[in-house]
Design a protein around this nucleic acid. Structure first.
Length: 463
RNA sequence: GGCCCGUUCGUCUAUCGGUUAGGACACCAGGUUUUCAACCUGGGAAGAGGGGUUCGACUCCCCUACGGGCUGCCA
C-alpha cells in the first residue's frame, strides 16, 4: 500500500505534487497496492473546499485515480490528540509548561554562550508531576538524546541523524490541536500505509516521525524521499517560471498521457526507455530507478513526449480530450460539423502535432466555414492565372469518387494541362480551401471536408 | 551558524571499478516533400575542482566549491 499526501495551500495542484502523486500511483498500481489520498488541511487558513477541489481536479485530469475516500487530516484531529495522550501514558511524551518566551530566552542564552545551535531542552522533561503548575501545557515527545536515528531511504540511501541535534518535538499544542508531524504518522499508521513516497523536503523530518513510530511501537514504513522538480534555470520551481499548477498544463494543451510519461521520466529512468504507456510504466517503475538530484523542467521534451502520445492515441479518445482541453482553456467548443470533420482528419493530423493548440491550428481549414476569406499571402496565390486553373479543375471534381486514388490523377492531369508542377497547383488550392499558405496536404483537406464543401470553396474562390 | 541531501553532454538520463562514457530532447547539416510540420540520415556536445584508495576510477573515501532542504506550539 502506498500513501500520498497533498497540501492545498494555494488552491491548485503543484506540478511537483503531481509528480509525487504519479510516482505513488505507479508504484502502487504496479504492485497491486492501494493508492490512498489524504488532504493535509490542518492549516485552516490555507485550506478551503475550493483548494481541495482544485487538487482533486488536477489529479483526475492526470488520470491518477485514488482508492477509497479522500481522508481529511483536519477531521481526524481527535484521534491525533488521543495518540498524544497515549504517548503521555506510555511515558514517551511529557507535559511541557514552558512558554514561548521562555523557549526564546533559552535559545538566546545558549547563543550568547557561543553555541552554534541550540536545541531546546525543556526543564519539564523529567519533572515530577507533583510539581506541575495549573497552567496551559504542550505535549512534547521524549526523544532520545543520545545515539542516532537511521532512515533507511529507498532513494537517498542510509541517512544517519544524530539524536542530539533534534529537540523534543511538540506533538500536541497548548491549545489542544495536534501538530502536522504527529498527524502524518498517526494517519499513515491508521490508514495502513506501508510506503511513504514524498518530496525530499521531508527527509529530515522523517527522523522525528520515525521516533513517533518507535514511541508508539508501530512499524516504520518504507521511506522514499524523492528530489523536487526545479525550473528550467535550476532554481526551485516558483510562479515566475510560469506554469507551476497541473491544471495550467491542461489549459496549455498537453495531453494527460504525455504529461504522465514526461513526468515519470523526470528524475526516473529505466535503461533507455523514453516513450511508454502508463501500463508499461507500472511494469517498469521501481524506487531504485529514481535519481537523487533535482530535475529541471524542459518544455521542449515535454512537447516531444506529448507529440508521441497524441500520435499513439485512439481517435475517439483524442477527440474527447480535445473537447475537454477547449473547455479547460475557455475556448469555444466544436460544432457537430466540425466534430465530424475532425474525426476524419485526426488520423493524419495527430501524426504531426504535439499539443492541442497546435492541433487546432492545423485544423483551421476544417474549422472554417464558407466563405473562406484568404489571408493576404494566400490571396496572392489566387491570381488570375491560378483562378483559371481552379476553374478548369472544379468541374472535374464534380463527379469524382472522393478517394485519394481517384483524385490524384485528376489533379495531376490538370497540372499537366497547364504545364505546371504539382506545387503550382497546390498553392492556389490551399488558398481556396483553407485561405492559408500553410496547411495539411491538399488531398487530406479535400477528403476531410468532402466533395460538396471542396467544390463550393473552389467555386467561391473563382467567383 | 548547525545538520542532512545533491553535482555525467544545454536539458532528462544510462553506467552499479575495466565502455571509443550509451540513449532521448534540444541544436547543427543533409535527405524526403505540394507549403509548414512530421519523417529519415549524419554531426558537435559531459563525469564541478582537488586529494586519496586501487593494477585500473564517472563509479569507493576525504576536502573544497556550488546548488537544495531542514533547523517553529507551519505544513
Amino acid at each position: 500500500m502506498v500513501s500520498e499526501r497533498l497540501i492545498p495551500p494555494t488552491g491548485y495542484l503543484h506540478i511537483g505534487g503531481g509528480r509525487t502523486a504519479l510516482f505513488n500511483w505507479l508504484y502502487a498500481r504496479g504492485r497491486g497496492g492501494k493508492f490512498l489520498l489524504r488532504i493535509e488541511d490542518t492549516d485552516r487558513e490555507r485550506s478551503t473546499p475550493e483548494a481541495t477541489a482544485a487538487i482533486l481536479r488536477g489529479l483526475t485530469w492526470l488520470g491518477l485515480v485514488w482508492d477509497g475516500e479522500v481522508v481529511s487530516q483536519f477531521e481526524r484531529r481527535d484521534r491525533h490528540a488521543e495518540v498524544a495522550r497515549e504517548m503521555l501514558a506510555r511515558g514517551t511524551a511529557y507535559k511541557c509548561f514552558s512558554t514561548k518566551e521562555e523557549i526564546e530566552a533559552y535559545r538566546a542564552a545558549r547563543e550568547a554562550e557561543g553555541a552554534s545551535y541550540a536545541v531546546f531542552q525543556s526543564p519539564w522533561r523529567d519533572a515530577d508531576p507533583a510539581t506541575h503548575p495549573d497552567a496551559p501545557f504542550a505535549i512534547r515527545m521524549k526523544a532520545p538524546r543520545t545515539g542516532e536515528t537511521i532512515i533507511e531511504d529507498q532513494v537517498q540511501g542510509r541517512v544517519v541523524i544524530k539524536n542530539e541535534t533534534l529537540d523534543d518535538m511538540i506533538v500536541l499544542r497548548s491549545d489542544g490541536t495536534p501538530v502536522y508531524m504527529l498527524a502524518v504518522v498517526v494517519d499513515d499508521h491508521d490508514m495502513g500505509v506501508t510506503h511513504v513516497i514524498r518530496g525530499d523536503d521531508h527527509l529530515n523530518n522523517a527522523a522525528r516521525q520515525q521516533m513517533v513510530y518507535d514511541a508508539m511501537g508501530w512499524t516504520v514504513p518504507v521511506w522514499a524521499h524523492i528530489p523536487l522538480i526545479h525550473g528550467p534555470d535550476g532554481k526551485k520551481l516558483s510562479k515566475r517560471h510560469g506554469a507551476t499548477g497541473v491544471e495550467e498544463y491542461q489549459a496549455m494543451g498537453y495531453p494527460a498521457a504525455g504529461m504522465r510519461n514526461y513526468l515519470t521520466r523526470l528524475g526516473w529512468a529505466h535503461g533507455d526507455a523514453e516513450i511508454f504507456t502508463s501500463a508499461e510504466a507500472m511494469q517498469m517503475f521501481d524506487l531504485s530507478g529514481i535519481g537523487r538530484a533535482p530535475a529541471r523542467l524542459d518544455f521542449k521534451k515535454l512537447e516531444n513526449t506529448c507529440g508521441h502520445h497524441i500520435a499513439m492515441a485512439d481517435d475517439a479518445a483524442l477527440l474527447h480530450e480535445l473537447l475537454a482541453f477547449l473547455a479547460a482553456a475557455g475556448r469555444e467548443s466544436l460544432t457537430d460539423v466540425q466534430q465530424e470533420r475532425m474525426k476524419r482528419a485526426l488520423p493524419f493530423l495527430k501524426k504531426s502535432v504535439k499539443t492541442f493548440p497546435e492541433l487546432m491550428e492545423k485544423s483551421a481549414f476544417l474549422l472554417a466555414s464558407r466563405p473562406i476569406v484568404p489571408e493576404p499571402k494566400a490571396a496572392e496565390a489566387l491570381d488570375t492565372v491560378s483562378r483559371g486553373i481552379l476553374k478548369t479543375l472544379t468541374p472535374r471534381l464534380q463527379n469524382a469518387s472522393w478517394t485519394k486514388e481517384a483524385l490524384e490523377p485528376i489533379l495531376n492531369q490538370t497540372a499537366e494541362d497547364y504545364g505546371i508542377g504539382f506545387g503550382k497547383l497546390a498553392a492556389p488550392l490551399r488558398a481556396a480551401i483553407a485561405g492559408r499558405t500553410v496547411t495539411p496536404s491538399v488531398y487530406d483537406m479535400m477528403l476531410t471536408i468532402g466533395r460538396e464543401e471542396t467544390v463550393a470553396r473552389l467555386s467561391d474562390a473563382v467567383a
